[in-house]
Structures are given as structure tokens and as C-alpha cells.
Write a protein that binds this DNA or RNA. Sequence first.
RNA 1: UGCCUGAUAGUAUAAUGGUAGUACGACGGUUUUUGGUACCGUUUGUCUAGGUUCGAAUCCUGGUCGGGCAACCA
Length: 552
Amino acid sequence: MSEERSLNFIEEIVEEDLASGKNNGRVLTRFPPEPNGYLHIGHAKSICLNFGLAKKYNGQTNLRFDDTNPVKEDVEYVDSIKEDVKWLGFEWAQELYASDYFDKLYDFAVALISKGLAYVDDSTAEEIAAQKGTPTEPGTPNQYRSRSVEENLQLFADMKAGKYPDGAKVLRAKLDLAAPNMHLRDPLMYRIKHAHHHRTGDAWCIYPMYDFAHGQSDAIEQITHSICTLEFVPHRPLYEWFIEQLEVFPSKQYEFARLNMNYTVMSKRKLLQLVTDGFVDGWDDPRMPTISGLRRRGYTPASIREFCERIGVAKRENMIDVGLLEFCIREDLNKTAWRRMAVLDPVKLIIDNYPEGQTDVFSGENNPEAEDGDGSREFPFGRELWIERDDFMENPTKKYFRLGIGLMVRLKNAYIIKGESIVKDEEGNITEIHATYIPESKSGNDTSGINVKGTIHWVSVEHAKTAEVRLYDRLFQVEDPSNEDGDFKDYINPNSLQALSNVFIEPDLANATPCKPVQFMRKGYFVLDKNSTPDKLVFNRTVTLKDGWVKK
RNA sequence: UGCCUGAUAGUAUAAUGGUAGUACGACGGUUUUUGGUACCGUUUGUCUAGGUUCGAAUCCUGGUCGGGCAACCA
């Protein structure tokens, strides 16, 4: 089936390269995160693309941390990134760091200075910005641009030696201050930062900029296909210029459109704000579009890989409906998750004609999708049960086929019952529903001849365990919070988390284990939260079941 | 009034000069001891105006609209 799928434009490029014998048939990609935040679903797209390509064409992928800005980076992020990539199911050929190449990069810079293609500029950031001109006006050179090679060499060495404070000088490429492409107007190559680096410590006080680190790292590793997102398209001429001047391995850069998904944000900067401002419970809050958040929410690696496969890879801006992600996790979990019964919003059901103190034990298959039901488990039945409050309707509409006075419904894996009467408190809330059961309708041995339309889930009052259940909704109230007026945080959905502290679950659920998703029948897929304990079970709802019932 | 880049159903994504497909969604139906699943069916599209061609989503020209670019961020 995968051979029937048409190729995306990058696969086409790779196949052309393979056909023409380029790189001797070698395919080496890289995934290059900056360790300044946690990975999100957009990174998953890039991971699946880079690792998937290598896998498909017998190549390899390096994990390379783009750690050239020490003030923003941290080992916490390095560790989380490695965990997330592994969890998604991918193996990198080498774990590398741009900082591994600092010596090499320094030599590259010296080489460019020696060729008269780079110079040390003493201007302030503001002056440099002003001298760059605007997109419609060319930039103007300053006096530093004409410094001699010897002077530049000495100054750059002094920069490295720590003779100057932050911001005092920068190293710039000498290109074209009138270039229509702003990135070619003498871009910065090095800046001074007396900052502690998470790997190189205090060995350096000058750090290369992205444009003078990324392509060079690609070349050092002999990356064949360097895949990045669309905003780097205007950097490509620079990428190629440096490679050409340095006469290093000619890695090629290709750009695809990043993933956007509605009702969330997809930038590390914004996600960091949600974390630091306390709108969520950390990077792995189940509402976050981070890999770790999705994992805690109950998403599986396979479902995320499938999602990345389905969204495709192209060059046009896109906005993916979060519904597609939900489809992918339902599709996966439907086949694997064991079915259990849990009553989220309980109301008491009393079966008047069922003897007090009597207990039946019923059983139900773990998964009706599996050949043999994937085994089964037992659960007790008694005179008093918890059922879902909205599985009863006092004045049922014609199309409602659950419980009502005089209406019959099947208790899943047990008996058919008929609603008889209700008891209300002073405020008019239903406190008890009374019903009678049909003894001949016993599940698996039904001789009643009665056909009911509806089946509802239930839990025995006497035997039920309790749990906390957390229901999640979209984090934002609008499709594209970043594109609205004002601050994106103004559009946060105040009801994105609903915690139900008194949920009744069938006894077998006490054996639930983390990482093992379950389906609460008719309610959705759930997974144990990382903070769950045997004494206080906490379930996260991954996703609801698709609801084909439109009320009214 | 610069440069780069893109435009195909509601959303994504194919068709690489030769019947505009697929998936998700929506809608309808069959099955069902989950209003789930499965299965079947319906619906909706080439930004625009010209041109080349026997034939254009595809090639050419103009326009329109979207995105990116002027960080000592990546």
C-alpha cells in the first residue's frame, strides 16, 4: 500500500538523486533541534520526514543539536528531545552537537577572513540594522568594512580571546550591502557572548550565528539532504555561498511547509509562555501539542506517525484540522484498547425486582475488534447500580433510545431493564431511578425475545472503585490564536480542563497500568496519568469516541 | 510600491500536456448488546483574464490573493 502512495516532492528529489547516482546513492539526513524548548507535533512532522526518508531509502539520520546560543539552551531540553525522538520510534545514527564543531567553525571563519570575505565590525546592533537599509533601499558600508585582512585576523583572535565585552564587535561576511535579499547584506557570522554553554562551558565567548553554523555542520557531516521549513528559503543563497567559498561538502537545502494545527499554537516561544505563566501544568500538560503532552494525554507513537503520514509534505501554507489527529488515535486505540466500564456522571439506579443482597457476575470481552475478544474480564452486578446521568431522560424525545419511564434499555453484558419511577431532591435533581429487570434477558442467554435499541454501561454500587477523571478540551477558543488581535493568551479556553473527582469504575480497572490505554465504553479512550497512584487513580481522557448521535 | 515563495472540494494531498483522484469532515443507509467499529452510498474543487496546443490543474503573459524576509534568534 505504501508503494501505491504517490511521492511527496522531497521523495521525488531523493529518487532523482538516487537515479542520477548523486552521492553514490548515499542518503544522510539530520534532525537539527535547538535545545531551547520541548518538541511539539510540528517537530514530529519533521522527525517523521527526516527519519522516514532515510529509512525508506536505506540511509541514516543524525540527531544534531543546534546549540549555538548558550543563553537560551539547556540540558533539560536536550534530554527531553532525545526521549521524544526515541519514543516516536526512531533511531539516530549519531548524536551530534553544533558545539562539537566550534573549533572547526572558527577555522572556517579565519579562512573567510583570509580570503577577504569577512570583517570585524565595531558597530552597535542598532547601527548595523540602520546600515542594512530596507528592502527597498540598499545598505551603506561603514569604515570597518575596509579593514585589512591582518587587522581582521587580529581582531577576531582578540574577540575569541575575550578582550571585548558582549556586543562590542561582530564578525560579518563581506557580501553585498545592496542585495535585494536582506540576508545577503553582510550577515553576521559571530557575536560575543560571555555566557556559559551547556556543553562547552566557558571555553568560548564568541558563538557562531545560525547561518554560519548550520550549513557548515551539514557539510562536516556530509548531509546529503538538509530539510528545513519555508522560512529558511531566503537563507538558501547564503547557505550555498558559504559552502562554495569554504569549498566544503555541498549539502543541499530543501524547504517544506511547517505544520499548523487549529485551536493550538505551534511555536516554542508561545508554548514556553504557557508554561512559565502557569496556564498549563508544564511542557507535558496533556493539553499541550508537545510530544510529551500528547504522550501524557494517551497518544501513541504509531498514531502520531500515521498522522504525519496523512498530512503530507508540500510547500504551501496549511492549517490541519485537529480532528485528523483525533481520527488517527481513535483508529489506533480502537484496535488495541481494552474495554471497561466507568460512570463519569453517576446517578443511582435501583432495580426493584432484583433481590437485595444478591450478586451476579457477568463477563465482557476485552476488545470486540480482536478475533477472540482478546480475552475477557468479570464484573459484579447487584440491585443498586451507577449509571450515567444522561442515559436517563425524564421527557424523552422520539429519537432517544436509552432509559426513560416506561422505556427499556440493555445494561451492557447484563439484563434488559425498564424504567419505572424516579426520586428527586428538593431542588428537583434526580437522586434515584427505579427500574425492573427482565430475568429472561440475561446476556448471552436471552430468551425474552425483546429487542431494545439502546445499551448503556453501568457499575455496581457495592463493588465500584472510585477514580479521578480529567477531561480535556481544546486549549484555545479560536482556530488560529496567533492570528487574532491582541495577545494569543487572550483566547485560551477557560474550560480546557474538567476534573471529575468522583467517578465510579469497574473493579478490574484497579489493575490499570500506565501506558496501557483503555476505552471507557461509550465515553472515550483514557490512560492513567503519570501522577496516578493505586490509592488515588487518575485517568486522562485521550479523546472521546466519535459521537454519531445528534441531539434534537 | 524591493526580493523570495505559494494558490486543486470545508481541510489536507495526488494527477509531472491526455477521464481531476484519495483521505479526513459533512450528509444518508446497512450491521451492531458501545448512538463506537465495520461496510455501502451522496456531496463539494483546478484563484482570475488572456495566450500556446488537437488537448492545459500542468506550459507562457498579465493580474488577484496568501505566506516569508530588514533579530548580535534558530
